[in-house]
Design a protein around this nucleic acid. Structure first.
Length: 796
DNA sequence: AATATGCTAGTTTTT
DNA sequence: CTAGCATATT
């Protein structure tokens, strides 16, 4: 709520802080004494550009929040003049709390502490009319579409263009457009050639999509940033106003900024240059979604004269853990470089263990956890399950642990996973609320018009769309009109009339301040038949969905009305359930960033899984380095004991596949690692587990000079080269397609994956190696490749 | 219009 | 192998 009580008038903010207030502001600063020298530098270097390189566990949030407190305490700025940006709502909340704690209740909430997106919304609402062209522009009440809406909109546009949705799925286009928006490329600015992506129509569809969004008075997440940047660039006066307002700028997790966020910051900071960016280049793990490590690496040249302050004293982990992590990350090139140190006691070395297969791995980790929990391991003592985390590379790895823990009755919680507001039933309910609040929300209408089933299929919806378009109405109005004119008859008509009439009542009630909005929400769900739909559903997950709906209604209580709730939810999609009970945490490495646990397990360190084959195929060395940073993030989550493991065999897509230990294992510094022999492998030194590691450690020293020439790397390259040269050439005739004869080894072309080589044939199913990896594809989806293939002379 | 079958793809995730 | 989607069937 405090997010929106920005009491300063826009113009007033530009005025300097009165002297009287400045003098009054200077108070003793006891908080400074609690900082180490580097943190203190970070807090006191208030003017000019500052890059704060904060390694894992070095008290970065403390430095950042103290810096804000110091700015306020010295009277350098009022709360409304500090811009503090984070990536997640969670981080923003945390900072707010800690600033409040530092300053007591003396300071009103900071109106401009928030995520890039929430701050952008506030800015855009004030200048909405400037977005778009003269004829069509945003209104301040614009709605924010989530990914789901975005994809459904794109799907409509793709259908309108008569493009084969199978070969060109809307998701892919959404991804492409997101990528463009991350780089602040509006349709007009797409570089030569890029607009040809997506079957040559990417640029056109992008432009159509943007136009449609304006028509709907809507923006997607990417727009929030891009529109802001465009606004600043096109209207220097507007930019000037915001530059004057934000006297000091602070940015958290700077290594995760994408190009649009970078431009956004640069524009706002370029006048006074009071910008402090906090980040750790070694923890940049979001390159795949547009983050540019380059932003942090370039900081000093972007802001000449910048001070660089390193936070290197680590308060989290033991020396062995730090050394293992440091040794690993040292293999990356082009780092800014940091040396983490600690005063903590030495502790145990990082443990490494190999297992026969992924099930044995899960079994062993389960036993270890039981031992820790029962206090059977004296070096660590009896531990709460809340102290223990399992961090995996890919979510499918979680299943082995869930299965195992379920059978042995070990309580666990999965962190991440599908979020509350992304669940189907929640989205449906929200669509009802959206439509009740704004009857012109066509996307919400489409989502729920036939949920629960009202006998209205594609054809009926199409009729409604035609009706609405012809008369210039919203879909809801169009539906009412279609019923009235008899365009829709039969069974659907009655249900549709009921629906539109009920929606009319709900809308009136939503606007009526005398109607309690929580009761209204309940009534909407009941009268629409939505609750009944799940009550009658015999799926085992139906009761859970009903619970979620109850929870949603309960969440409404904290808001004034439905409008306020919807505005909030559009931006704050997180749901942190406080940890109540004792549970082991299971999550992906990405989800673990920023968290810490005394005991950490890192399973699945196998080449291809971690580092992920796909990362390496798609992004080569850059991808590998990002994977290595992910490994670094994983190890540095541990406070006391970190255990890395790998399995020689793993079930993938229903088949057992054998794999080699991760090359990252080769890169761990030997002195800080203890190799364990799993129970059941008597004598050690043979079998799938200990032996490969023992060998690889022997190579390790020599390999250190250049890991990309390491045995592991070469081994991989050799293997993929071998795979690319199949021996058999068995001609296969695909029925009813006389021209489509394929043999193993043929070069073929696939609309989506491009050129590839056939590696295997079963009936009409081909296994093909594409640049992006192996795919199994029906023969009908590929053609003989035109370039350099063996079948060039086959008539087509 | 609702349900059954068939196919394909299959990391990481916030806003 | 399996979820999610798209097409085929009733």
């Amino acid at each position: 709520m405090s997010n929106f009580d920005d009491s300063d008038a826009f113009e007033a903010a530009a005025a300097p802080v009165p002297l009287s207030q400045r003098a009054m502001g200077v108070r003793p600063a006891p908080y400074l004494d609690e900082l180490n020298p580097a943190q203190r530098d970070a807090v006191e270097a208030l003017d000019g550009p500052v890059l704060l390189l904060a390694g894992a566990g070095t008290g970065k949030t403390r430095a950042l929040t103290t810096r804000i407190a110091h700015l306020l305490n010295l009277g350098r700025a009022r709360p409304g003049q500090i811009l503090a940006v984070t990536f997640t709502n969670k981080a923003a909340r945390e900072m707010k709390n800690r600033i409040g704690r530092l300053l007591g209740e003396m300071v009103e909430g900071m109106p401009w502490l928030g995520t890039f997106h929430s701050i952008s919304v506030k800015i855009l609402r004030r200048h909405a009319e400037l977005i778009g062209d003269g004829a069509l522009h945003l209104k301040p009440s614009f709605t924010i579409l989530d990914t789901d809406d975005q994809v459904r909109l794109l799907k409509q546009l793709i259908q309108a263009e008569n493009i084969d949705e199978k070969r060109w799925p809307a998701r892919q286009l959404a991804h492409l457009i997101d990528g463009w928006k991350n780089r602040c490329l509006s349709p007009a600015k797409l570089p030569q050639g890029e607009e040809r992506a997506f079957d040559g129509r990417g640029g056109r569809l992008y432009a159509a999509y943007q136009r449609r969004l304006l028509e709907l008075n809507a923006v997607d997440f990417g727009d929030l940033l891009m529109h802001c940047v465009n606004l600043f660039q096109a209207h220097p006066d507007v930019l000037r106003g915001w530059q004057d307002r934000f006297r000091y700028i602070l940015v958290d997790e700077y290594q995760d900024t994408n190009t649009a966020q970078y431009m956004w910051l640069r524009l706002l900071a370029q006048a006074h240059r009071n910008i402090c960016c906090v980040g750790d280049d070694d923890q940049s793990i979001y390159g795949w979604r547009g983050a540019e490590v380059g932003n942090i690496l370039r900081f000093e040249s972007d802001f000449p004269g910048a001070q660089v302050i390193r936070l290197e004293q680590n308060y989290r982990s033991t020396p062995h853990i730090l050394a293992a992590a440091s040794g690993l990350i040292a293999a990356n090139k082009g780092r800014l470089g940091k040396t983490l140190w600690t005063e903590a006691e030495e502790g145990e070395r990082v443990r490494l263990i190999g297992h026969w297969d992924s099930e044995a791995e899960a079994r062993w980790i389960g036993e270890e956890i039981e031992a820790f929990h029962g206090g059977h391991r004296h070096s660590v003592g009896r531990r709460s399950l809340n102290d223990i985390a399992i961090l995996v590379r890919a979510s499918h790895q979680m299943r082995a642990f869930e299965d195992r823990f379920m059978t042995i009755g070990l309580p666990y919680r999965v962190i991440g996973g599908p979020r509350f507001y992304e669940r189907q039933e929640i989205r449906d309910a929200m669509a009802y609320f959206r439509l009740a609040v704004s009857p012109t929300d066509d996307l919400a209408f489409e989502r729920i018009v036939n949920v629960p089933k009202r006998g209205l299929g594609d054809k009926a919806v199409q009729k409604i769309q035609v009706e609405a378009r012809e008369r210039g109405l919203s879909l809801l109005e169009g539906a009412a009109s279609a019923v009235a004119t008899g365009a829709i008859g039969g069974k659907g008509a009655g249900a549709l009339r009921q629906f539109t009439e009920a929606m009319g009542r709900w809308h009136a009630d939503a606007l009526d301040s005398r109607v309690n909005h929580v009761e209204l929400a309940e009534r909407i769900l009941d009268e629409s038949g939505y609750t009944a739909m799940w009550q009658n559903d015999k799926n085992p997950d139906a009761p859970g969905r009903l619970d979620n709906l109850k929870e949603l209604v309960k969440a409404l209580e904290e808001f004034e009305n439905l409008q306020g709730f919807l505005e909030h939810v559009a931006l704050v999609m997180d749901n942190d359930k406080g940890e109540q009970s004792e549970e082991v945490s299971i999550m992906t490495l990405h989800a673990a960033k920023g968290l810490e646990y005394p005991i950490v397990f890192l399973p699945g360190w196998e080449d291809g899984l971690f580092p992920s084959q796909r990362s390496m195929d798609e992004s080569g060395m850059k991808g590998l380095e990002e994977e290595r940073r992910l490994a670094y993030v994983g190890i540095t989550r541990g406070e006391e004991l970190v255990t890395i493991s790998f399995a020689g065999n793993r079930r993938m897509y229903g088949q057992w596949q054998s794999s080699l230990p991760s090359r990252f294992i080769d890169e761990l510094p030997e002195d800080h690692v203890e190799v364990l022999t799993p129970p059941g492998l008597y004598g050690g030194g043979y079998g799938a587990a200990a032996q490969p590691f023992a060998q690889s450690v022997m190579h390790e020293r020599a390999a250190r000079a250049d890991v990309y020439n390491s045995p592991g790397w070469k081994r991989m390259q050799e293997r993929s080269a071998q795979r690319a040269q199949p021996v058999h050439r068995t001609p296969v005739v695909i029925d009813a397609e006389p021209a489509a004869r394929f043999s193993v080894g043929d070069r073929v072309f696939h609309q989506k994956f491009g050129n590839g080589t056939i590696m295997g044939i079963a009936e009409d199913t081909l296994t093909i190696q594409f640049p992006t990896g192996f795919k199994t594809v029906k023969a009908g989806y590929v053609q003989p490749s035109s370039g350099g293939g063996a079948l060039d002379d086959v008539p087509f």
